[in-house]
């Protein structure tokens, strides 16, 4: 489904601030797989997702999506089959437009935007029904500006927008980090439902190691732009948070001689 070969991204190359955000990353994600990504602040997790979505261009390496090389393709082109949630809940929605206008934009994913009417009657009914599944009461506020919603409501709406036309690949960047525990749990539950129902290939970044180990089917660990650990199957099932911390710092020590906490 998604293959990344020898991907490198270096920020501020050749200056004192040089930072290898992705360092020779090789990864492969099977169709329908759910992978969680962990790593300390600045490990390169967001950069990895940005490289996949096309927000950042690779310095070298290749990315193949669904059998097609997309390394040079622009972000909007990839977005036809990639859905995305950002770390910042404000980033995924247009605040001065209404809930239904935001949904209508997302609903047109993969199509050419022409001069046909933006929100048809039938769309309104469909949006209402989809919103009611979030259980946040947003279905009665179709004409409210999104800027009036709370962060959690906006992130739930973004989740709906990212999945309203089921994408082939879903990128989640700590999408519940800015939410209160209760809302976070709810958004996480809805995420799980959407992903399972539509069998979407998913990559989820999180700082919650427990979430990382118990959501999806494999976990990768990044450190300083490198892939230091891949956990799958039995090894992953038997992994505890304490042991992962140990394994992780050992792996990080191995390659860099410094220890960093998750």
């Amino acid at each position: 489904m998604l293959t990344i070969k020898n991907a490198r991204i270096t920020f501020n190359a050749g200056t004192v601030n040089e930072r290898k955000a992705l360092d020779k990353i090789n990864l492969s994600f099977a169709r329908g797989s759910f992978t969680t990504v962990i790593g300390s602040n600045g490990a390169g997790k967001s950069t990895l997702l940005n490289a996949i979505s096309g927000a950042y261009a690779l310095d070298s390496g290749h990315i193949f999506l669904d059998g097609e090389e997309i390394t040079e393709k622009p972000e909007h082109f990839r977005a036809r089959i990639i859905g995305r949630l950002f770390q910042d809940p404000l980033k995924g929605t247009a605040p001065n437009m209404t809930i239904e206008e935001n949904l209508a934009l997302a609903y047109g994913r993969g199509t050419r935007r022409g001069l046909s009417i933006g929100i048809r009657k039938a769309d309104g009914v469909f949006f209402k029904e989809a919103l009611s599944r979030l259980g946040l009461g947003l279905e009665d506020r179709l004409k409210s500006k999104v800027g009036l919603l709370s962060g959690g409501q906006r992130q739930a709406l973004t989740l709906l927008m990212a999945t309203i036309v089921p994408p082939k690949l879903l990128l989640l960047d700590e999408h519940t980090a800015a939410l209160d525990p209760q809302t976070a749990a709810q958004v996480m539950r809805i995420t799980g439902e959407f992903v399972r129902e539509n069998n979407i290939t998913t990559i989820m970044v999180t700082h919650n190691i427990d979430d990382a180990l118990h959501t999806g089917d494999s976990t990768i660990v990044l450190s300083n732009g490198r892939l230091v650990l891949t956990l799958e199957g039995v090894e992953r099932e038997s992994m505890t948070v304490e042991r992962l911390m140990k394994v992780y710092s050992a792996a990080a020590n191995d390659s860099f001689g410094d220890s960093m906490l998750l």
Binding site: E75, R80, G92, T93, A94, E101, L105, G108
Partner: peptide, 19 residues
């Protein structure tokens, strides 16, 4: 709608597969 959203949140517009 796409043009209005571009002035409001460009990231979101690109993420919705709009140039």
């Amino acid at each position: 709608l796409a043009i209005r959203a571009t002035g409001d949140n460009e990231d979101m517009v690109r993420a919705s597969s709009i140039d």
